[in-house]
Design a binder for these strands. Structure first.
Lengths: 228, 228
DNA sequence: CAGTATTGTTACAATATTGTAAGCTGATGA
DNA sequence: TCATCAGCTTACAATATTGTAACAATACTG
């Protein structure tokens, strides 16, 4: 995973919660934030962005499904994984219909949970609500904006958005010009690599503090790379 | 579900497959297409669009995971649900990493599968690869086009795309003007309902066979409705 | 029926987006 | 050193998108 993902882990069973948190952190892909009841979960959900929420169905103050609905209503778009003790159909259905994305029955083996977490994260990256961390910006492709720390918005054109999207997703960083051309303009595009260069230039003007000395969107012999 | 969804069901166990198909059809939400081996599954996947694929891991000719990867490589974007007989971790992980979206262990209870299918479909509607059936068109929001039966493409502007998207998703059809305004332009938009009307007009020019007698995008006292 | 509100139609102007060309820079290598 | 090339910068023109205004048609109400 290119960037550390924030996970909000909500479970009142402290032993389980901490064990889980520890294992998640060990993967070095996640930063884990913990909550032990619905109220504090909501609070934490509001005060920062999480990339995924793990939610126990049974909490001391709220029902997990209700909490999930509440979170959705409050605008939490991240995938929610429900943990439950009972594998009854009713639970499953209700769990899924509360707006949760996946459902895991306790006890579970950690690798299974982990695989499902990764699958959810991967899937969410394709979604309209996806938010990416891009250097100092948070990037919302569907809104075509970059938002900086002080909440200033940088509007992007469609081409710019697509360029960033494909650069971000490139598994190992460098994307050759012609690949980028094909990805953004399509395979029969009558556009020269020169056009791409101009777009990169314009992007840099918008996103680089010092455009003539690119830090985020760097040139790399034959292509471009997005620094995280 | 507003529109019948096509499901491709791949399993060599004829009894199970037909029982499943029947139950799915009974919900009246799905049309089911069956295949009993990898080869014919690939053939069917190519010849038409399916909204979801159910795939048994063990097939006579191919391994289900390989088939899944192959489908992905061939451009199948629909969610894939893997059915497996063994609940081993390895299977789970491999299953999820092959590009499958969810994983259900046999034997399962039908309502559980159904709930998971619905969850996948719901989630996929938010994705970039989502394709909607809109009257005679297939609508690809991420490409901002409508494609008609004879493969002619109608390009849409961003506003037009968003209008269609929100109309399509409206649970019970009619969307009041002001709601649509808020959804498409945002809550602090300095745009009058008049602007919206113009956009609707332009949309109709593009998508209605007889624009002065709208069949797809109809006016409904106070708002608009998209006919499926 | 008159008149008012709602919705549709047309035309136009402001703006944003995009592609291209032309010149520039700096590195590389013969 | 000089030629060459990849990549950057700047400017400009074509086009697409969008909002608005003015007017026409239609439905609704008293």
């Amino acid at each position: 995973m290119a960037q550390l993902k924030n996970i909000l882990l909500v479970d009142d069973d402290e032993d389980l919660r901490e064990a889980l948190a520890e294992q998640l952190v060990l993967t070095e892909d996640f930063e884990v934030f913990e909550a032990e009841d619905g109220a504090s979960a909501m609070r934490k959900a509001k005060e920062m962005h999480h990339d995924l929420v793990i939610l126990d169905v049974g909490l001391p103050d709220t029902d997990g499904r209700e909490l999930c609905k509440l979170m959705r209503k409050q605008g939490v778009k991240a995938p929610v994984m429900m943990l439950t003790g009972h594998d009854s159909d009713a639970d499953t259905i209700l769990g899924l219909d509360s707006g949760a994305n996946d459902y895991v029955t306790k006890p579970f083996k950690f690798p299974v949970l982990l695989a499902r977490i990764r699958a959810q994260l991967r899937q969410h990256e394709q979604s309209e609500d996806a938010i990416f961390q891009l250097g100092p910006y948070s990037f919302r492709p569907s809104m075509k904006v970059l938002v900086d720390e002080s909440d200033r918005k940088i509007r992007l054109t469609e081409k710019e958005t697509n360029i960033l999207k494909f650069l971000y997703r490139a598994p190992d960083g460098v994307v050759p010009r012609d690949v980028l051309l094909h990805e953004v303009w399509g395979y029969n595009a009558g556009v020269t690599t020169h056009t791409l260069e101009t777009h990169i230039y314009r992007l840099r003007q918008k996103i680089e503090p010092d455009p003539s000395n690119a830090q985020l969107l760097v040139t790399e012999s034959g292509g471009y790379r997005l620094m995280s």
